[in-house]
Design a protein around this nucleic acid. Structure first.
Lengths: 261, 261
DNA sequence: GGCTTTGCTTCTACTGAGTGGAAGAAGGAG
DNA sequence: CTCCTTCTTCCACTCAGTAGAAGCAAAGCC
């Protein structure tokens, strides 16, 4: 290339990825100018690259002229292999069927939880999380369940940062949070009470494989129905254990993984 | 760039996309050499581009050294906005809850059906379809439901091609298929009997908005239980109608769609 | 109605980022 | 051990990609 690439040593590939990266849960639809702004690239450059992405259906242009992620990328994303999710889904469904409550599965990604699956029906949808979205760990049930079983150095480092406080009920004092994590470790599950969203409570259990928390299963109810939470703990723990078992079996000994060569 | 780009007039962007496009449902994991082969690009070029994609987590390298779609692309894909799917999911869940059978939602993409959502539990998983996968229209329930409500010219053109025949029960004679489509139109739903997979039957209903079939809801059962299919038709039609209603409401009159500017 | 703002598209001259081939590693198979 | 396959690194050549400016178009605003 020429001219512009000089300043940031960016390759074309990184530019393309920067454009895709400009889209996130808080910015699912962007105008050309916004993309240029968010990526720091020249408008004409973005214009051309976006046109190529659109032609390939990686992006598509909505009725309002804004760009959004296209179906082709969704389709590609479905190819991301995740034995965990595959193995877990039927159990999440089972848990939902037995309780009628929102159920979700999350993994840790950096210092956040990433929601990888969710089962919900018509009622009780307090919109806590979307599949593919991220939230901090300390105010969420799944986050606390995961954090509690991470190595001490990780927890210490997590607690030593300033912690976000999405609601007045969020626990941000390192000492209190540490005590709570100890309790989570002791009882094998975590609970939250309006710590992330006013009006919702949750319980969550880690999926432990070896001594690593590979994921966490969470269940969310309206805070008007906190009293029903305890009843949900047993099924929750049972499902987390079944997922762990199936996962171990799937990862350790799949009958000579088939070569798709 | 230099040298190589001459032959195919390919831009770097198109090369990157070609690499991503090398992955599909039949090739979810590829070696570097395979990617080079499938894209027709020089190994060294693929090597560098793939390294950048891997660094961005668009791709990741499995334990066996093969590349696969990375979680970051999955995450991006989750941003692909689809009001239809959003509106439909609770109803699919409802239908699954009421029947305990595999339920899925598909749209037409070109001459194929693309499965966009699926609800299933522990039992009865004859693995007919995966979310994100494609199948031809004529041997599938959802495909026939969609095809029957497409304009005549489309159907004619569809039937005039040689049609695949995944099982001996697949209907490929244009005349017979056309009569069947007429029946689908008349009764408002389609059925299949081992036309795509031996051992599975299905029923499917289109989601009609205006006079366009925007999607189809399908329900699949083992062929040992064909006799239960008729019982499932009413709930199926009901759900398709509810989805159509909600979709119309969501698309036509969402209270002044919020600008995420 | 005309004037301003905002956002998109097209054009062009310049240049260094990107190319592919070849040679070097690193395993596996026989 | 040697042969084979697959991945990685290096390098000299060059054209694809860059940014900026100017031209459009639509939507608000007074």
């Amino acid at each position: 290339m020429a001219g512009g690439a000089r300043d940031l040593g960016r390759s074309v590939t990184s530019r393309v990825l920067a454009i895709l990266g400009a889209f996130d849960a808080h910015h699912p639809r962007l105008t050309l100018t916004e993309i240029a702004g968010r990526t720091g690239m020249a408008l004409s450059t973005v214009h051309r690259l976006v046109a190529e992405l659109e032609e390939w259906r990686a992006l598509r242009r909505g009725a309002d002229g804004r760009y959004q992620i296209g179906r082709r990328l969704w389709e590609l994303g479905q190819l991301a292999p995740d034995p965990l999710q595959e193995v877990a889904h039927p159990w999440l469904q089972e848990l939902f069927g037995g309780t009628g409550e929102n159920v979700h599965l999350a993994v840790r990604d950096g210092v956040e939880v990433l929601y990888v699956d969710k089962v919900y029906g018509k009622r009780a949808v307090p919109i806590v999380s979307r599949t593919g979205s991220r939230l901090p760990m300390h105010p969420t049930g799944v986050g606390k369940a995961l954090l509690a079983f991470e190595p001490a150095w990780f927890v210490t480092s997590y607690l030593s940062r300033p912690l976000e406080r999405p609601t007045p009920h969020t626990i941000t004092e390192p000492g209190r949070l540490a005590r709570e994590l100890a309790q989570v470790r002791a009882q094998g599950y975590a609970t939250t009470h309006e710590e992330m969203t006013l009006g919702s409570c949750s319980a969550a259990a880690p999926v432990l494989v070896g001594d690593r928390p590979v994921a966490a299963v969470g269940i969310v109810v309206s805070s008007r129905r906190v009293r029903e939470l305890p009843r949900l703990v047993d099924p929750l723990l049972a499902v987390a254990a079944r997922i762990a078992g199936d996962y171990r079996a799937a990862v350790a000994g799949p009958p000579k993984s088939i070569n798709v060569r």
